[in-house]
Write a protein that binds this DNA or RNA. Sequence first.
DNA 1: GCTGAAAAGGCTGACGA
DNA 2: TCGTCAGCCTTTTCAGC
Lengths: 151, 151
Amino acid sequence: MRLDRLDERLLALLVDDARRSYAELGTHVGLTASAVKRRVDRLRGGGAITGFTVLLNPHALGWTVEGYVELYCRSSTPPETIKAAIDGLAEVVEASTISGEADAMLRILAADMRHFERVLEQIGGQPFVARTKSVLVLSPLLRRAAGTAPP
Amino acid sequence: MRLDRLDERLLALLVDDARRSYAELGTHVGLTASAVKRRVDRLRGGGAITGFTVLLNPHALGWTVEGYVELYCRSSTPPETIKAAIDGLAEVVEASTISGEADAMLRILAADMRHFERVLEQIGGQPFVARTKSVLVLSPLLRRAAGTAPP
DNA sequence: GCTGAAAAGGCTGACGA
DNA sequence: TCGTCAGCCTTTTCAGC
């Protein structure tokens, strides 16, 4: 899908605040509300925008512990198996298969350290998991919702 | 900030789709639109909801390479120094100081492999960075916008 | 805290340039 | 592809309970 400058500016404005009205977006980029709506509809239809969400503050919700977990799997576990195992765990907020020694990287949010440990045990208990290696987040420095358009 | 069941259900509904109308949210939880609005306003004021955004599809925008980068810093670099260095890099979408051998973990999105390499060089060129260690994402399995309320 | 109503403003689709 | 415009729906506020 091809984007022009206006589309990129609209995306940046929406990443910053998705509740801006079409009219407000229009004044920023020099279009009318309907022209903006047409472009946003096109960005959604084309798959560039996959959804609208709220950003939550984990700390305000009582999630005080965060960590990254590397997964080492037995033999060559297919990605689908890993996904199926973690899909039910609400504490896992990010997961990818990766290159290197480990097979997958997870990011986990937990209410406290005991909760974090319990989640680790649930993951480590899976039959395809050989071992895990985790680090705790000390200070979250940056959490961007999404990338903007490429330079 | 204290949340009751209704607040948690509203948050889950908004994480799933932040463009639902107050009336629609109300039918899901059994409240009128104005009651829902007051609760959402309270969740925003209390800091539980920190903002509204769009979710972008990196691939549809031409960002085809993703990776995790561990940062090893000289002596004890303060978190502020790290944050200041990466704040200007749009390619860094996530950053935290962490426990363990490395000092920080970054997640990076790039248009292609050359772009990823260039970003690594920019980061490695910082005076406080001793070395970096990176792994590439093979398949993104899960990317949740945020955690829901604690169990 | 909630409901319900009323005014203001945003969304949406059709139409012509 | 854009702008205009009309009809409808949502948001927002404020009594009243």
